[in-house]
């Protein structure tokens, strides 16, 4: 572990949801640096250091990826697949954070080795608790 603040990569197309998640993350994990991208293509560019994301100092590798499934341009499951296939990226925990409770999505994500599958709760309190626990688990307790 180094002393740099951990980077959380949030891939979320809905700006309201992104705002909510960012606010909650700041509330419980203030030390983390949050990078928000609203489409799949940009997310892949970031992870594979393409285009404007090629500088590793400016855009360091995330300690955690929060990934929505339904994204413009590139689907969330596609991004998951590419992360888990890449030797460099496969150890980064990918937590699916989505509204979908569809069986197909859950099975697909598990099949592609998602580290966790979380459904956004309707209630803000529950949402907040989930973000807190999730952050604690993946950023503090979990080793990877």
């Amino acid at each position: 572990m180094n002393d740099d603040p951990p980077v959380i990569l949030l891939i979320e197309d809905n700006p309201d949801h992104a705002e909510m998640i960012i606010r909650l993350l700041r509330r419980y994990h203030a030390s983390a640096r949050i990078e928000h991208l609203s489409d799949g293509e940009a997310a892949l560019a970031y992870l594979f250091r393409r285009g404007k994301y090629s500088d590793p100092l400016e855009y360091p590798m995330p300690r955690l990826v929060l990934l929505d499934l339904r994204l413009p341009r590139v689907d969330g499951l596609d991004i998951l697949k590419q992360i888990k296939r890449s030797e460099e990226l496969c150890r980064i925990p990918v937590v699916i954070l989505t509204t979908s409770e569809a069986d197909g999505d859950i099975a697909g994500a598990c099949g592609l080795c998602a580290n966790s599958y979380l459904v956004k709760p309707m209630d803000l309190e529950a949402f907040a608790r989930m973000i807190e626990t999730m952050g604690q688990y993946w950023l503090v307790w979990n080793r990877h």
Partner: peptide, 19 residues
Amino acid sequence: YTVSHDLKSPLITIQGFLG
């Protein structure tokens, strides 16, 4: 699926920001 997802999204937003 799409409908449930896309209808849930604004609901979550509304609920969240009400909080």
